[in-house]
Design a protein around this nucleic acid. Structure first.
Lengths: 180, 180
DNA sequence: CATTAGTTTCATTGTTTATTGAAACTTAAA
DNA sequence: TTTAAGTTTCAATAAACAATGAAACTAATG
């Protein structure tokens, strides 16, 4: 099977964006390819479609699985493994988000905590600690907040997202009520 | 001036995280260094503190300026340029967020729009277009939403962030009111 | 306008990261 | 078991990316 020009362009774009999204070019391409392809694909089909080596595909699959972005499927009477996206677009975006938080925020949060609990020994360390405290508080807020969003039901999320510019009003309203 | 062990550890961590945050190691280190250093620093001081070449610092400064993360300061009677963070921690996080959106989301959104307005020519393209539409809608929602957050006053933001698990209740509450 | 302190540029070099493909592994079927 | 279809691994290689430092540039000062 060969990709149409438009689909090929999309897949290549995913490749170029790959590294910005947290993985590398090939993995970005694989992900894009599996998303726009209706039927699950074998590793060989992926290698052919993208003109890359079989070994590279194997590595990519491993990586995409570690991000929980793809799943394996089997077809009765066929020994090959077929790969497909592990959920809806929304699910996948969520996974990328979570995984990136784990890699980009959590390690820093942990370092900051370790540093902040220690006693500062001079002015430089004192100032540095204040700054680290600020970063820490910010990251912690973001972390809590994103956990909160994950906990909302899809309907609530929908409702929140649609709120858009209404969010300000709802907040003001809530504040008024609380003041009573 | 030489860094204390603890401050050095923080700066090195920023370096290691650098590439995950969107820039490279050296630039991460520079950013961390300027954040925990009370006084603005010259390019030479930065180079010394991090043991990197003067040229590398110059490149890094340019990059950090393009992210709007640092600003130049001048000291009367001194010809050197002094560098310092361009705002509060919160400001900087915001800038990184904006900049990354510009690099990670906007180009994709634009490609998807171009693709979606065209007529699909066969089943493969039709299915691919549906998927692209989903990605498009998701990214657009995220984009609008983040623009919305930027528009809120700091107080409203504070209020929203502190809401935490209360967000669900506020939403339900809002829905009830709307139904009347 | 010549000097000099300070900054930027960029070709070269060094480092890191990604890819290949052949060999090793796994497992279903004969 | 043996065979063969399918998959994974990993040393070697290729490609991408980052860092250096000497030369070019800029602009304040005498």
């Amino acid at each position: 099977m060969t990709l149409s020009d438009k689909n090929y362009a999309f897949v290549m774009h995913c490749g170029e964006m790959g590294s910005r999204w947290g993985f590398n070019r090939t993995i970005g391409q694989m992900c894009g390819l599996l998303i726009i392809t209706k039927e699950p694909m074998t590793a060989n089909e992926i290698a052919d479609a993208l003109s890359i080596s079989r070994g590279n595909v194997s590595m990519g699959i491993k990586e995409l699985q570690s991000w929980r972005l793809i799943k394996v499927q089997h077809i009765p009477g066929d020994r090959k493994e077929y790969y497909a996206p592990a959920g809806t677009i929304w699910d996948m975006a969520n996974r990328v988000f979570e995984e990136r938080k784990k890699r980009e925020i959590d390690p820093t949060l942990s370092l900051l905590r370790d540093n902040i609990i220690e006693q500062a020994h001079n002015d430089d360390e004192r100032f540095a600690q204040q700054q680290m405290q600020e970063i820490h508080d910010l990251l912690e807020t973001v972390t809590k907040w994103s956990a909160e969003l994950q906990r909302l039901s899809p309907e609530q999320l929908q409702s929140l997202m649609k709120l858009g510019s209404g969010i300000g009003k709802v907040l003001d309203f809530k504040d008024k009520i609380l003041k009573k």
